[in-house]
Design a protein around this nucleic acid. Structure first.
Ligand SMILES: [Mn+2]
Ligand SMILES: [Mn+2]
Ligand SMILES: [Zn+2]
Ligand SMILES: [Zn+2]
Lengths: 138, 138
DNA sequence: TTCTTGACTTGGATTGCGTCCATCGTAGGA
DNA sequence: TCCTACGATGGACGCAATCCAAGTCAAGAA
């Protein structure tokens, strides 16, 4: 995390207490794939006055900087993934919405042949697997 | 389309004028990946009194029946894809949001090894490619 | 240390997308 | 033709996210 704060400072970020607690929440390892409201709730435990607008602002900035990835599986609230530097994919339970990181072999980007690119400059690919988790299957 | 209407009638659907125009809009070949509001606008050209609630209801039923697929790439409005019987994936322009169907080789489902399934019964996989379309790249 | 200033934060209003619900209308069978 | 259960309606509502004008403060200057 101190790494992240250093990188942000290096990019000219003003280091406010609000930004610090948001970064800490994302970085504490326990909680990946949180919604903005969940980030806000956890941030507010440490800094009660923090506003939802600031959480949204900070998350958006972290996404722009490439430090955090936005995950929108269904039409519900977006989730924020601090594992931006570990390329991976997601396995989502259709029952309870749980998200697990998965690391299949191969790169999906290379699976798209040139004759299927239609002149696009393809820069990214997201794979989402759907299924029932053990708890929901029983 | 008559195929679709036949299938629906066979499932006990009451064939109302509203359901008919929604099915026609989805099926006219020109317009894939429409939002619910776009479907409503085009349906209203033929049947001005049709309500948004009915469009949402009908689209939801078609999705449940497996006749139409819901596509939610970003956090914006869901899009409805009548190509449900032609398995395919999507290439999305990050500039203008255009969606193209693509048909890469191989099945992404089989790419997830057993030791990455965490006990899930995996039933589906969606691949979304991101990039800039020719128009937006220039 | 104090001053200054523009970047940052705030909460309330607003928007976008979708669902819910009480009431009305009608498709299709008797 | 009549009945009625299923479907349509539109307005209220809910949730996620953005916008905005006003207030606050981090951090460089002196
Ligand atoms: Mn992840
Ligand atoms: Mn498609
Ligand atoms: Zn589950
Ligand atoms: Zn484009």
């Amino acid at each position: 995390m101190s790494d992240l704060l250093e990188r942000l400072r290096g990019r000219g970020w003003r280091l406010t207490s609000q930004r610090r607690v948001v970064a800490e929440v994302l970085d504490d390892g326990e909680h990946v794939h949180l919604t903005a409201d969940e980030v806000h709730a956890r941030a507010a435990e440490r800094l009660p006055e923090i506003s939802r607008a600031t959480v949204y602002n900070t998350l958006g900035e972290l996404v722009t900087l490439g430090e955090v990835t936005e995950v929108s599986t269904d039409g519900r609230a977006k989730r924020y993934d601090p594992n931006a530097h570990h390329p991976h994919q997601h396995l989502v339970c259709t029952g309870c919405g749980t998200i697990r990181d998965v690391h299949p072999t191969g790169s999906p980007l290379t699976d798209l042949p040139a004759d299927q690119r239609f002149g696009f400059t393809v820069t990214d690919a997201a794979v989402t697997y759907w299924g029932l988790c053990p708890a929901c299957a029983s």
